[in-house]
């Protein structure tokens, strides 16, 4: 594979060069006083940080709003964010033409709920910092794809800590042409390798009910989910809960019942709805005020359901989402 080795400050100068045009923007991370956050850069690239050790929200969430025709945007985000972007492109929520998506190798992140002040932002100190995987969020520890191999181009970190830019599509080549230097063969082994197979998720309803009994139905998990994009959500208002006659009927039929709050209903239905597009970024757990282990469930279910169709969310632009396509000869044992 051909790519370019990035010199010190190479990304900054390349993006700075790109921003010279009036209509060009860069969506990436800005190093603030005590936090690193999502930022749109125009004109200048002050306090730009390629890596962000703190996960607060998935950047693809903002892309649904940020988009405007005519402006060229370069995304410099984590692989999970680019994967969510790819899924949203497939769901026709974002138009792909004016966006160059660059995924940057992710060394892992810590939760924004923890003390975030002392996490470093440079490659080498961050590698040292995450030597102990216990420091990472659970979602990152078990992440399937921390490599920058998705989107139009990727920025990879090799074993010595130097950065490489690798194009995957034509737009990736455009991005690469901004960088100085000549294309050369990319080293085979990188610092972050693809993670092995994950275990098959299995749970029983009692554990599930216990875990989700803390839920207060604030629906933050839905709102912060990058791929939960419906404007008219099934759970808008309270139409999904039995009321009036239906509620009375339920009580007379089944005896005394808890007032149905729809907690399990909400999470199970949402789990199915995002099953093929979930990227396992853990934004839902990050947003949950009750500390429910949402990632464990959503990631586990989505990996099982995607595995059925040999699909992986956000892997490529061409792979159709399994629920909108089919093969005539498949799933012979589906019928009972």
């Amino acid at each position: 594979m051909q790519g370019k080795k990035i010199k010190n400050g190479g990304i900054e100068s390349a993006l700075g060069h790109f921003l010279k045009d009036e209509q060009h923007l860069v969506f990436g991370f800005e190093k603030g006083k005590d936090n690193v956050s999502h930022h749109v850069f125009k004109d200048s690239l002050d306090h730009y940080a390629p890596l962000n050790p703190v996960f607060s929200a998935n950047g693809a969430l903002y892309l649904r709003r940020i988009f405007a025709k005519g402006a060229q945007i370069v995304l410099m985000l984590r692989p999970c964010e680019i994967r969510a972007y790819v899924e949203l492109v497939k769901l026709t929520q974002i138009e792909r033409e004016d966006v160059i998506a660059v995924s940057v190798d992710c060394l892992g992140t810590i939760s924004s709920k923890e003390k975030t002040g002392n996490a470093p932002t440079d490659v080498d100190p961050l590698r040292e910092y995450f030597k102990d995987p216990e420091k990472m969020r659970w979602a990152c520890r078990v992440c399937r794809e921390r490599r920058g191999v998705v989107g139009d181009a990727g920025i990879r970190i090799d074993k010595n800590g130097s950065l490489w830019a690798i194009p995957y599509t034509g737009k990736g080549e455009t991005f690469l042409s901004l960088l100085e230097g000549d294309a050369e063969a990319v080293p085979e082994d990188m610092f972050i390798v693809s993670s092995g197979k994950t275990e098959k998720f299995q749970v029983d309803m009692e554990t599930f009910s216990k875990d989700f009994s803390k839920c207060i139905m604030c629906m933050n998990c839905r709102d912060m989910c990058p791929v939960c994009y419906c404007i008219d959500c099934v759970f808008k208002g309270d139409e999904y809960l039995p009321k009036g006659d239906a509620l009375l009927n339920k009580i007379f039929r089944t005896g005394s019942v808890d007032i149905p709050q729809g907690k399990e209903l909400f999470h199970l239905i949402r789990m199915f709805h995002v099953s093929q597009t979930c990227v396992g970024c853990g934004a839902c757990e990050e947003a949950c005020p009750q500390g429910i282990p949402l990632t464990q469930y959503f990631k586990g279910i989505s990996e099982r359901l995607q595995g059925m169709f040999g699909y992986m969310s956000g892997r490529s632009f061409e792979e159709p989402i399994p629920y909108v396509t089919f093969l005539e000869e498949e799933l012979k044992d589906a019928e009972d």
């Binding site: 998720f201 299995q202 749970v203 029983d204 309803m205 599930f208 199970l268 789990m271 199915f272 099953s275 093929q276 586990g300 279910i301 099982r304 359901l305 059925m308 169709f309 399994p322 629920y323 909108v324 089919f326 093969l327 005539e328 498949e330 799933l331 589906a334």
Partner: peptide
Amino acid sequence: NYYTRRKIAALKEMFDAFSM
């Protein structure tokens, strides 16, 4: 019904994960 087959098969897999 090809879509049904995919959706319901996936739903069954999900129910399987929840032991129901």
